[in-house]
């Protein structure tokens, strides 16, 4: 179970990317995190495994405090956190198998890492995962020969081979076409169910989030402004997340909303509505 408490990040430039985010994620939930670009989605997931160092608050994974861990402790903790990246972040010149096995690096000796000499169980597990993600015969292909969708599957296999307690996915679909994006989302939800781990997915496309996630977190200007089941995500809440509008009680914002063009459509145009943002408060960086 992942718990964050008042998690915050202020960059050295003074930009406050994340403020007081407290969430608890557990079970086999698929959690989608949505919000406009610059809202702090990426900062949030990177603060969890401390690829970005949080400035305030705490992160606990299965009760263990991750902030403040030393080098070794942090490396041990990272073994329990699988991560999938927008740009895949695979080692391009290595083979598919080497990339998947890199998920086990935290468990082998330096010499074994140098020789690519992994225990048979790891190799077994890697083969199973390659079958699962549909790359069964590609273990000796080099990653730079693969398509974007295939690379992302390798990325997912690398995250899952870690046998993680949680999987983080940072915009896993942003570099992919719509159809491949759906395949990847399906794969991630299957993994949550089969491996019994929670999956946190940063995502741009609200329709994908609604379709695949059990729960949605909405970030705006670094603050958590929505947290609820996907079914509860209304047009009002989208307005709050994407345009920083006041919640429905606010009389000023209310009459405008139906004319925003989002009502009744499944997919709100995220970028197209920026011009209507004047009535809300917008974060400075946006």
């Amino acid at each position: 179970m992942l718990e964050t408490e008042n998690l915050g990040k202020t960059y050295p430039t003074g930009d406050e990317a994340l403020r007081d985010v407290s969430v608890t994620i557990g079970g086999r939930e698929v959690v989608a995190m949505i919000g406009p670009s610059g809202a702090g989605k990426s900062t949030f997931v990177r603060c969890i495994n401390r690829l970005v160092e949080p400035t305030t608050g705490s992160v606990r994974l299965d009760g263990r405090e991750l902030t403040g861990l030393g080098e070794d402790g942090l490396r041990n903790a990272r073994r329990d956190i699988g991560m999938v990246f927008q740009e895949y972040n695979l080692v391009e010149r290595l083979t598919v198998m080497e990339n998947v096995l890199s998920g086990r690096l935290g468990y082998v000796s330096n010499w074994a890492a140098l020789r690519r000499n992994f225990p048979p169980e790891d190799i077994e597990r890697a083969y199973e995962l390659l079958d699962l993600v549909g790359l069964g015969d590609m273990e000796n292909k080099r990653v730079d020969e693969l398509s974007g969708g295939q690379r992302q599957r390798v990325g997912i296999a690398r995250a899952v081979v870690q046998e993680p307690k949680i999987v983080l996915a940072d915009e896993p679909t942003s570099s992919l076409d719509p159809e491949t994006s759906r395949d990847v989302m399906e794969l991630l939800t299957d993994i949550a169910a089969e491996r019994d781990v929670p999956v946190v997915i940063n995502i741009h496309e609200v329709d994908l989030a609604e379709q695949y996630a059990d729960r949605i977190l909405g970030l705006h200007g670094g603050e958590l402004v929505f947290d609820g089941p996907a079914a509860d995500l209304t047009d009002e809440s989208k307005g709050v997340i994407y345009r920083g509008e006041e919640p429905p009680e606010s009389p000023a914002a209310d009459p405008d909303r139906p004319s925003n063009g989002t009502a009744g459509e499944g997919t709100p145009e995220i970028t197209g509505n920026r011009s209507n943002a004047g009535n809300g408060r917008l974060p400075a960086e946006d």
Partner: peptide, 15 residues
């Protein structure tokens, strides 16, 4: 990015 991907798995500096 490629280095970050490996780092996220908990690899040591040598790895």
């Amino acid at each position: 990015g490629q280095v970050e991907g490996v780092r996220a798995t908990g690899a040591s500096p040598f790895k």
